[in-house]
Design a protein around this nucleic acid. Sequence first.
DNA 1: GTAGCTGGTAGACACTGTCTGCTCATGACT
DNA 2: AGTCATGAGCAGACAGTGTCTACCAGCTAC
Lengths: 195, 195
Amino acid sequence: MESGAERPLRERLVDAGVELVLAEGSGAVGLRETARRAGVSHGAPRRYFATHRELLSAVARRGFEELAGRFAAVREPDPRARVAGLARVYLGYAAERRGMFELMFRHDLLDGDGAEPAGPRLREATVPLFGELARLVGECTGDAERAPVATAALWANLHGMAQLQGWGSTGLVLGEGREEELLAAVLTSHLGPEQ
Amino acid sequence: MESGAERPLRERLVDAGVELVLAEGSGAVGLRETARRAGVSHGAPRRYFATHRELLSAVARRGFEELAGRFAAVREPDPRARVAGLARVYLGYAAERRGMFELMFRHDLLDGDGAEPAGPRLREATVPLFGELARLVGECTGDAERAPVATAALWANLHGMAQLQGWGSTGLVLGEGREEELLAAVLTSHLGPEQ
DNA sequence: GTAGCTGGTAGACACTGTCTGCTCATGACT
DNA sequence: AGTCATGAGCAGACAGTGTCTACCAGCTAC
């Protein structure tokens, strides 16, 4: 019954890693614990992940895929609404899947710098998204020349917001429940006033 | 010779931790390795740090002290120049002492949430600085009412920039050496055009 | 001079990542 | 059919880690 075609072990290990990172943070994602959760021996993961970092990288890559999926589901045609939608997706992902979000940006744990000949680098996966965002920002501000810098600024702002909201600093400093207001201010700052 | 009054072991352990975190990242700061660097037995740190997290927290606290010292050295009287100065200090610290900066915001590793009855919480140490920044932002924009939200936005922006610059994403997406330009754009976005 | 405290040593335990050798099924080739 | 190679997972070992515990050298105070 369990399932017609069994999911390959590699995927099951990443599944287990995702569960672990969401439940207990990236520190809990060990080779052995992951194997235990997947119901295999402690040495089994080694066939797919030569090292601890490779497992973590695979889990993080899963995160980037999830996030890309959410981005792809944003359908707003209007540039400004679209930027707002993408921003909300980003912040929403960071809030809902906190452990994943943190792991995804722990470059000290991840590969993508060294070795790994096949398979895209993790960081560079964000470049196309940056390109789309820059186009949208250009449309909003009507200044295509300054769009890259403005986009980098907006990008950094969103990333910082995600980070701060993640450890409650937004609430600490501003009072609870003012995220929407803050996001609106951020968008206005970088894109100019609405309409 | 070595030194007239010997530095207490607790401080020497934190020193060693700082060295380690700067040289090899927060993952390298272990109780045992730190003890080794300080030339004491592997159990010695336990007298001062009951747990690994406590050691890491002490190292992070040292970081906040360093950063506070740099902030205190900013002398610009003009509000806008002062904000710019503080921002440069923040980004400069993140760049020069990367490992420390990363550790300081790894709330999953640090205490300050649980236990630790005496001694100020780490996160809350940033609140007074936020207050000063909000005052300055209010002076720059002439809108004291919106200052808190504007300050939170700026704060998040700086933190995001520090993060992205730390792993080279700024360069990846914008080309190298455009940090000053980006900072200028960020300040303009949140404080309005210069003068 | 002896009791108690402070600051440190040393051994043990469970756990981790990594390495290595092993088993056993499957499938290809002769 | 028989052999061989390969893929996939198991199991044991090793060093290193955090944590716990017992122990001991000095010092101070009565």
